[in-house]
Amino acid sequence: MNPVQVKNLDTHYGHRHILKDVSLEVRQGEIFVIMGGSGSGKTTLLNHLLGLLRPSSGSVHILGQDINTIGALAKQELRTKMGVAFQSGALFSSMSVGDNIALPLREHTKLDDTTIGIVTRLKLEVVSLAGFADLMPSELSGGMIKRAAFARAIVMDPKLLFCDEPSAGLDPVVAASIDDLILRLRDAMGMSIVVVTHDLDSAFKIADRICVLDKGEVLALDTADAIRASPNERIQNLLNRRTEEAEIDPDAYLRRLLGEKDEDEDEEPMRDHL
């Protein structure tokens, strides 16, 4: 059973078609990189994998369960088996780093306080943040926040780990150390890891397989070597950081210049949940 299975996923944001018939599966124990430029739909895809958005059609199976149809309690249970390291870290700013990391354990397990304390500090050791448990997130640097977010993501020893742009906004040395951390986590814990990134160097360093997203479509899905050797022009453009000459739709272009809005384009969908 593959830990992540996406079938024919189609999604819309208002009237815009964001993801177009995306299918992929992540295998047990592999590092799977979802790569694409901004606007490729990779963040939207991640949010669907996390069950934060509902697709227009298609299905997302996480650890064998359809995340959009299972009951609330099963979903809660499922979520204790997956970890997420957000791009911004998303540490709770009102809690110390230690409390942030301990929160899932406090909420979901009946472990003894001593054990929770040891596990928390153990995870800080793993991400090389030993001794930072009592600091507040606002006292950490960008790289340290990412590390703390990793520590929180793996505190429940998840089977499946998602990382959103782990190296974005970090200097190359710190970014490389985060890549090493991802590799170590997979090797030691046998986790399956899904990484969303636009960073090519990082992607090729850690990936077993890469899925290239472009304008909401899967452009290619193959091993890292095969992607690098791909003859596809759009992939080579992406790899060589060439900007593409976008095809121009004269009607749409003129409308944009004249400031005429497409219907409903400016309407953001209302959030109906917290």
């Binding site: 700013s93 899932p104 917290l274």
Partner: peptide, 27 residues
């Protein structure tokens, strides 16, 4: 202000994916 900051900082999403209901935890 607190919830708004948490929303734009993805903290509410973080709670949700941890399996902690934001309504129960924050509201």
């Amino acid at each position: 202000a607190r919830l708004g900051t948490m929303r734009i900082n993805q903290e509410i999403d973080a709670l949700t994916v941890m399996g902690i209901s934001p309504v129960r935890f924050l509201v």
